[in-house]
Design a binder for these strands. Structure first.
Length: 636
RNA sequence: GCCACCGUAGCUCAGUGGUAGAGCGCAUCCUUGGUAAGGAUGAGGUCCUCAGUUCGAUCCUGAGCGGCGGCACCA
């Protein structure tokens, strides 16, 4: 039997052999480091028989697959520990997720934080026991009956739902046996003690809110302690830049009970909001969008016609008036934009017609969904609808992608990925229409040179969509932009244009947003910059701080000149020491501190200190104003 | 909406069945000091709300509201 190794060398072995034996035949060090094996590209247990010619690769902690193996084993060891400590629980599933794993248990008593500690300790003990982990192939019915007999009903349910041709494998480690596809490490001792149980949470069985709620234990697992430590440091870093915390510290906005899910924007937060909005508005104007504004409250009949009433009624705020009319606060702008489109007769010459609105929407989001600015009940979309012909879908998509990528770049995001979401199970429109819409969007995305990740079944109910996901400064992904092709709404709301032939035709509607919602995007922006905004975005751009009160008059003059040049800042003439002021304003994340004392007043200069730097630069007042004015200009 | 946890000063948090405390912040005064905390004094609290238990509840019990972490949802 010929085994080909990654370096191209071929070794001969008697069949059957195992990955473990092959590793041992290559070297004792490798045998010790081996975690699993890749046979013809398929990840397998080290101890599993190999009985045919194959390309083989020994997986060690240096392999890219190692972390997933480790996380998967950590989940199993957690389940074993939990079962040992709490024999009355039922185990369900425990998959690997980003940065770790979780395991869902069924138990009448809730777990406590102390239980987590106990489980973590027991996991370490199981590792110390170094119990062999062995794969067993079982008959389906026997396996199902076995799990039923030991009271593991969820496991037997999983087995019964597995595809008929699926091999049923169980993994035994010590006194514990679990249904699992594998692969696994050869023994529990191979699992690095670089894991931590992070939190307890509720989760529905099979992710369905109609099912019972299980108790989920989240853990993180790594190849070594340094990696674990780095991960925990990253979490701390993320916590420090939490927009809710910075929003309070920087006096940007607040929330309160009387208006759950709606933002009270303070002066500085609203200035940031306006800066971004004004920037986007200029970019849209340059792209020949028309900006419109539509009613906040619209009779239910329009939402019935659009189909939203049927699907989203319980998530809409409504009001009833004396005349028994029911009004809905608009949860989106699309149907209103169609109303504007329908005014007068549109010609093919009017297309593509790009209609934008900074549309304030209200949605009664489930209470558990609310999260700072990220998910609110009152928000404003940078919404637009492009009414166009089918032939124009491609060129409009390309154009949109260029605009989006340029805007993301100006706002400090260079990286983004694009996901393609196709038809969901519950949807409006014929399959033929969906075929058409999906094909058109895919073709347009190809023409725009986008690398698409597929997101099956995640489209909007009226059409497929592209989702633009940007990556922030600490590597987190945020879905912000979207482009959706819609053949349905123009039909439902009877939008037409007169074609070249003189016939009436349906326009296609492209729903598109770049930021998504201002609220959410500003949260992303705050966390991306950790509050250290570039000058053009900073709500307070500078502070003029006096070294002594003898410089007060000159400081006031500097402040006046900067304000006159269009910058926004503060004058600090308090009788505090300059070092105290530098600290205060650094903590306040003001990008530019201009210190002025007797010397500056006499020489008509300023001493500039930038946030994050200890250096100072002495500049003539006129030069400083010139420099800062230039630097504070928005892009484009 | 569901599961768990939490709710005390502007913020971060101690604490107690007999109506409360720290640090920071804030105010006033002193200090005029050259780039990340000078000093003194002082003002702030319906201990989330409502009911119950109790001689007495911020503390115990229940309900509600809100927050936080997940799940579900996200036009």
């Amino acid at each position: 039997m010929a085994i080909t190794l990654p370096d191209g060398s071929v070794r001969d072995y008697d069949a059957p052999t195992t990955g473990a034996e092959i590793a041992a035949s290559i070297g004792a060090g490798l045998a010790k480091a081996a975690l699993a094996v890749k046979v013809d590209g398929e990840l397998r247990d080290l101890k599993r028989a190999i009985d045919h010619d194959a390309a083989l690769e020994i997986v060690t902690s240096k392999s890219p697959d190692a972390l997933e193996l480790v996380c998967h084993d950590a989940a199993h060891v957690l389940a074993q520990a939990a079962k040992e400590l709490f024999p009355d629980i039922q185990v369900t599933i425990g998959p690997v997720i980003e940065d770790g794993f979780y395991y869902d248990f069924s138990r009448s008593e809730p777990f406590t934080p102390e239980d987590l500690e106990k489980m973590e300790k027991r996991m370490a003990e199981i590792i110390d026991r170094d119990e062999p982990i062995d794969r067993e192939v079982w008959d389906r019915d026997e396996a199902a009956a076995f799990f039923e007999s030991i009271g593991e009903d969820y496991k037997s349910e999983i087995i019964r739902d597995l595809a008929a041709d699926q091999t049923i494998t169980l993994y035994r480690q010590g006194n514990w046996i679990d249904l699992c596809r594998g692969p696994h490490l050869p023994s529990t001792g191979k699992l690095p003690k670089a894991f931590k149980l992070m939190k307890l949470a509720g989760a529905y069985w099979r992710g369905d809110s109609r099912n019972e709620m299980l108790q989920r234990v989240y853990g993180t697992a790594w190849l070594n302690k340094d990696q674990l430590k780095d991960h925990l440091t990253r979490l701390e870093e993320a916590e420090k830049r939490d927009h809710r915390k910075l929003g309070r510290e920087m006096d940007l906005f607040h929330f309160q009970e009387e208006a759950v899910g709606s933002v009270f924007w303070h002066d500085k937060g609203w200035r940031l909001y306006r800066t971004v909005r004004n920037y986007v508005r200029r970019r849209l104007e340059a792209e020949h969008y028309q900006e419109v504004n539509t009613p906040q409250m619209v009779d239910r009949s329009l939402w019935e016609a659009s189909g939203h009433w049927e699907k989203f009624r319980e998530h809409m705020f409504t009001a009833q008036t004396e005349d028994d009319r029911i009004w809905a606060m608009k949860p989106m702008n699309c149907p209103c934009h169609v109303q504007i489109f329908r005014q007068g007769t549109k010609s093919y010459r009017d297309l593509p017609l790009r209609m934008a609105e900074f549309g304030s929407c209200l949605r009664y989001e489930p209470s558990g969904a609310l999260h700072g600015l990220m998910r609110v009940r009152a928000f404003t979309q940078d919404d637009a609808h492009i009414f166009c012909t089918e032939d124009q879908i491609t060129s409009e998509t390309i154009r949109f992608c260029e605009l989006l990528s340029s805007i993301y770049s100006d706002l400090g995001f260079e990286d983004f990925v694009v996901k393609f979401s196709d038809r969901p199970e519950v949807r409006a429109g014929e399959d033929a229409v969906w075929d058409q819409a999906e094909d058109a969007l895919k073709a347009a995305a190809e023409a725009a040179n986008l690398d698409l990740e597929l997101n099956p079944g995640e489209g909007a109910f009226y059409g497929p969509k592209l989702e633009f996901v940007l990556r922030d400064a600490i590597g987190r992904d945020w879905q912000c932009g979207t482009l959706q092709v819609d053949f349905v709404l123009p039909e439902r709301l009877d939008a037409t244009y007169v074609a070249e032939s003189g016939d009436r035709k349906r326009p296609v509607m492209l729903h598109r947003a770049i930021l998504g919602s201002f609220e959410r995007f500003l949260a992303v922006l705050i966390e991306h910059y950790a509050g250290h905004f570039p000058l053009w975005l900073a709500p307070t751009q500078y502070v003029v701080a006096t070294v002594t009160n003898e410089a007060d008059d000159y400081a006031a003059e500097v402040h006046e000149e900067l304000a006159g040049a269009g910058l926004v800042g503060l004058l600090d003439t308090a009788a505090d020491k300059i070092s105290y002021k530098v600290r205060q304003h650094s903590v306040g994340k003001i990008p530019v501190i201009l210190a002025v004392g007797k010397r500056e007043a006499e020489e008509r200069t300023v001493s500039i200190r930038r946030l994050g730097s200890k250096d100072q630069q002495s500049l003539a007042l006129a030069d400083a104003i010139h420099t800062l004015t230039n630097e504070s200009q928005p892009p484009a």
